[in-house]
Nucleic acid binder design. Structure first.
Lengths: 341, 341
DNA sequence: ACGGTTACTGTAAACGGTTACATTATTTCA
DNA sequence: TGAAATAATGTAACCGTTTACAGTAACCGT
């Protein structure tokens, strides 16, 4: 009659049954020291027979490695995350690691610490503003492996980072609306405040206006939050209240918001692109089948996920690298901007 | 000069600095025994000052709880997963748990055990065919908490399950194509083999044909795998090779596949819905803005994720329940079937 | 033949928490 | 007022691994 609280089979049970010490079993499992042919075979049998699975927590505690990678997102409201997750997950599975996904609102006022970090993962992929700079600097100072995704490191810190080119391509896209389609009152939907993609896109937007001698009008900036539903609401609100403010095009911030914007425009009987041109960003799978087909910027989102994860594993294996990697983007011209119509 | 291998601060450090025992610290952290006002305040200070974060693995090992829920998917190739994940993640965060997401190809021939299970999670959400029946039965027999998502339990096992109504609604939808739009050669794109949604939809499809006296034609069944790209390829291949086989409508299996199908039809210059009607399933966010707007079945995917997770927590708290929950679905008529044109 | 590797194995101390059990001081209540 | 319950705390065993250290036996080169 044992005092054991648990019913699960442990390494000791295996060791006893196979007539060896637990150390030998552990070494065989981890293949980090030679074991005699005979013992190996016996262990294989016993382990299968007893359905032994090593207890992860015990392993983590003893080895000080979790074999878990964390992905910190700020929300899960965007189809954008499917290709991203897919890229990340593929690499992680290949490496035999596990993926923990958490959403966290990095906010100075957020009292609770991030749910994932050094205490439960070996490394973190931090998307966008998933962590505030302070946390980032702190973790980095403690030598915790991280790779930033769709954001660059805070000044004076060097953390590897993978993102896409935003500024120039947005400049080009807005420039296209102006030069080719004669638009001059172009609305811009911001993403979340402090979101780097959004910031850079805004820079590109403004520089294109400036380059074309078009005055910037604060009234044409809306906060779409890169969220389909919020974009819809904010656009809907604008159309209800502010009909007096003229506009002839919308840069929706991202493709997901484009859906909300299109819905609102549609509801208010605007014709796209004849009256209002609409362009997005990301080139999500549905973009070419929206009505009208969406002119947008193709971003290699799955590659971002894949490369970021590979770099994180590089870090775990002590291959240092601190460069910011910016993947190229390209404009896909479709009908919503007025092309191909 | 200590022998400590790690540099991180432990509960013992906190205890020493606060002048109490580790037991007291532990109890205060877990709020599972009263602690004097004075000690509480001192601990708060010390813990913040030392930036103490409990080591997850140690906690798990000692308490035999991981505070981690696993979500087992068969892939991450579908925008469908965003609302699902969102529903799941919301509940998990509220409970202070963590979410581990894994893809696993449940296959008799798959030698490696599932990456998540009793050894690293407190419970599992098993999507579709994420696990083979044997594994399911096995884990269930060991009393491991699980909730099935978009599938029902194998015969003679009772595991709670949350899914959506497939058969009747598909019957209705196909019936609509036949009765209202006069279609008689309706193509059906299957999902992954053994995928229950797909199987049930097929049943509904066939029963609608039968009810209308239309003979079933095996040639009109394609394997779209519920995957946008595969659906495109298979449709594209069909249109290239099989032009002799007439058809006048496509039930694409799900909305994601609808995108692939639309692309292929478009490329081959078919007009939708005039020549070919197209209908999907799920009503993903983009469905109403496809070109043409997609007639589809609205599935409460986020609710499925939320409810399944809530039921899993119910299980963790020993509230038994073994019923199969089937959430209602409804047809959303848009233009791609021929309505509203 | 002998010191030095190499192959294989075992013992026991971590790893960083939780918690059963024990203890003392303080209330509560018949 | 005395017994019992409650509050607050400490001691130490335990959770299931990994791994430093130690040891034995076989092998190797000179």
């Amino acid at each position: 009659m044992s005092r054991r609280r648990s019913s699960s089979v442990t390494i000791r049970d295996v060791a006893r049954k196979a007539g060896v010490s637990v150390a030998t079993v552990s070494r065989y499992i981890n293949r980090n020291a030679p074991v005699s042919q005979e013992v190996a075979e016996r262990l294989d049998e016993v382990m299968i027979e007893m359905r032994y699975v090593p207890h992860a927590a015990a392993r983590h505690l003893a080895s000080r490695k979790t074999r878990v990678i964390g992905l910190l997102l700020n929300n899960l409201h965007n189809d954008f995350f499917v290709p991203l997750l897919n890229g990340v997950e593929g690499v992680i599975r290949k490496k035999g690691y596990n993926l923990i996904v958490a959403t966290y609102h990095a906010d100075i006022r957020n009292e609770t610490p991030p749910p994932i970090g050094p205490h439960n993962t070996d490394g973190l992929l931090v998307f966008s503003d998933g962590l505030v700079d302070d946390d980032l600097i702190n973790l980095n100072a403690r030598g915790f492996p991280m790779v930033l995704v769709h954001r660059t490191p805070p000044p004076s810190v060097s953390i590897p980072s993978v993102t896409v080119e935003n500024t120039e391509i947005t400049h080009k896209l807005v420039d296209h609306l102006i030069k080719v389609h004669g638009k001059r009152r172009i609305m811009f939907l911001r993403g979340p405040i402090h979101q780097e993609d959004s910031l850079r896109r805004e820079v590109g937007y403004k520089s294109a206006l400036r380059a074309n001698g078009i005055p910037f009008d604060e009234n044409l900036i809306l906060n779409g939050e890169f969220d389909r539903d919020i974009a819809y609401q904010v656009m809907h609100g604008f159309l209800n209240n502010g009909r007096q403010i003229a506009f002839d095009a919308v840069f929706t911030g991202d493709d997901d918001s484009a859906i909300g914007v299109l819905r609102a425009l549609h509801q208010h009987d605007y014709r796209v692109p004849e009256e209002i041109a609409v362009v997005g960003f990301d080139d999500l799978g549905f973009a070419s089948f929206l009505s009208p087909p969406l002119t947008t910027v193709r971003a290699p989102t799955e590659a971002v996920g894949r490369i970021a994860t590979e770099r994180l594993f590089g870090l775990l294996e002590n291959q240092l690298s601190d460069e910011v990697m910016i993947l190229p983007t390209e404009i896909i011209f479709r009908r919503s901007c007025g092309c191909q119509s």
